[in-house]
Simulated assay, not measured.
Amino acid sequence: MAASVVRSCCRVFLQTSAHGKVAGLSSRCLGGVRWKSSVQHATRPDLPKLAYQKVKGKSPGVIFLPGFASNMGGLKAEALEDFCKSLGHAYLRFDYTGCGASEGALEDCTLGGWKRDVLYVLDELVEGPQILVGSSMGGWLMLLAALARPEKIAALVGIATAADHFVTAFKSLPIEVRKEIEEKGEWVLASKYSEEGAYRLNLNFLKEAESHCVLQGPIPITCPVRLIHGLKDPDVPWHISMQVAERVLSADVDVILRKHGQHRMSDKDDVKLMVYTIDDLIDKLTTMA
C-alpha cells in the first residue's frame, strides 16, 4: 500500500480548501438555491437515446457516473453541478441506457452496454481531459472507461467503488443457492434502494459482467485516483476500494475512509468531502498544467 494514503475520517478532515474556493458552496450544493441545467437527449445510430445535462466551462471537466439503476438526479450529482458552475468548470451528468430519462429497458442492459454509454459521453459529448466521479457501480465503470480511453482521463474519484461487485457477490453465495439461481435463470437480489424491494438480474447480465472484472491483477491506470468509502457500507465492503488502490499502477492514490459512512455517501458531510476532494484534484491538475 505504499502507493496509497489511507485517511480515516474520524479525524478532522472537512476543512475549507486552502485556496478558499469551496467556502461559500455549502448553501448552494446542500439544499439552497440551485442553478438548473436542462435535460438533453443524445441520438445514437441504432442505440437508445441518452439523457444528459451539461454545463459548459473550462478544463478539466467533471463527469458523474451514477450507481446501478440510479440516475443523474441524485444529491451528489446535483451538488457537483453547483460546484462546477461556481468554479466555471465543465460538468456533465447523464442516465445510462434503461435508467432515468434515457431510452431502453433496464432488464435488457448489460455492464458492457453501460460502459459503451460512458465511452460515448467521453467521445461525443465532452471535450478535453475529464475527472470521472463514479458512485458504486459507476466506480466500476469509471475504471473500465479509464482503461479504454486513458488519454481522455485526468483523474478518477470513486464513491463506494463497486468493482466486480455483482460477480463476486454471486460467487460468494452457497453453491446450492447458485445452482437454484442458475436453474431459474434469474437472481432476485434484495435491495432497499428498489421500489419493489429487490432487483432482478438475469444470468446473461452476470455472465457478461464477468468479462469486465478488473481485480484479478494489476490495473494499468496511471492518473490520480481518489477512493472514498464508508466503513459501515452494508452493500459494498470498504476493502474493495483498498483492493482497487493496491492494483492500480498510479503512484498518486488516496483511500479516504468515513468511520460512519454508509453506501450511498449522501449525508451532508459525505457530499462536502466529495466536493473538497474534487476541488483539491482540480487545483492540483491545473497547477501541474
Score class of each variant (00 low, 15 high):
39 V>Y: 13
267 D>Q: 11
93 R>N: 07
14 L>M: 14
189 L>D: 13
246 E>H: 12
2 A>H: 09
100 G>W: 03
161 T>C: 15
169 A>S: 11
263 H>Q: 04
19 H>G: 04
140 W>T: 01
12 V>L: 15
261 G>R: 11
283 D>Q: 07
42 A>M: 11
106 L>C: 06
136 S>G: 05
198 A>G: 06
269 D>C: 10
204 N>V: 11
181 I>T: 00
117 D>H: 08
53 Q>G: 06
155 A>D: 02
157 V>N: 02
197 G>I: 11
189 L>C: 13
192 K>E: 14
228 I>H: 00
99 C>E: 00
78 E>A: 06
273 L>D: 11
260 H>A: 10
21 K>C: 10
201 L>Q: 03
169 A>H: 05
182 E>A: 12
229 H>E: 12
102 S>W: 02
126 V>F: 11
6 V>F: 08
79 A>T: 01
201 L>Y: 15
97 T>L: 07
237 P>H: 08
242 M>L: 11
97 T>C: 04
166 F>L: 14
151 E>N: 12
170 F>N: 08
207 K>M: 08
75 L>D: 14
77 A>P: 00
170 F>Y: 03
16 T>N: 07
157 V>C: 15
189 L>A: 08
179 K>L: 13
265 M>A: 00
251 A>K: 13
266 S>L: 04
246 E>R: 09
169 A>I: 05
6 V>H: 03
261 G>S: 08
285 L>R: 05
90 A>S: 15
17 S>G: 15
140 W>G: 02
200 R>P: 14
120 Y>C: 09
120 Y>W: 15
213 C>G: 02
84 C>M: 13
131 I>S: 00
281 L>A: 02
125 L>H: 03
239 H>R: 09
242 M>G: 03
135 S>K: 05
111 L>Q: 10
38 S>N: 05
231 L>Q: 03
160 A>V: 05
43 T>K: 09
181 I>S: 01
46 D>H: 14
115 K>L: 15
282 I>N: 01
53 Q>F: 02
197 G>Q: 09
11 R>A: 14
273 L>H: 03
143 L>C: 15
52 Y>E: 04
125 L>T: 12
83 F>G: 00
143 L>Q: 05
49 K>I: 02
245 A>F: 00
71 N>D: 14
175 I>L: 14
271 V>H: 03
207 K>S: 07
41 H>Q: 11
174 P>I: 03
188 V>G: 03
285 L>Q: 05
8 S>M: 08
273 L>R: 02
96 Y>D: 01
193 Y>Q: 10
243 Q>H: 13
104 G>A: 08
33 V>D: 12
237 P>S: 09
9 C>F: 04
98 G>S: 13
202 N>D: 15
141 L>D: 01
94 F>T: 01
87 L>E: 15
240 I>T: 10
230 G>P: 01
207 K>C: 03
25 L>K: 00
72 M>D: 05
202 N>K: 12
186 E>S: 10
224 P>M: 05
21 K>T: 09
256 I>A: 01
104 G>W: 10
124 E>W: 01
10 C>I: 04
28 R>H: 14
109 C>F: 02
58 K>I: 09
36 K>A: 14
261 G>W: 07
158 G>S: 15
271 V>D: 11
114 W>V: 06
284 K>G: 08
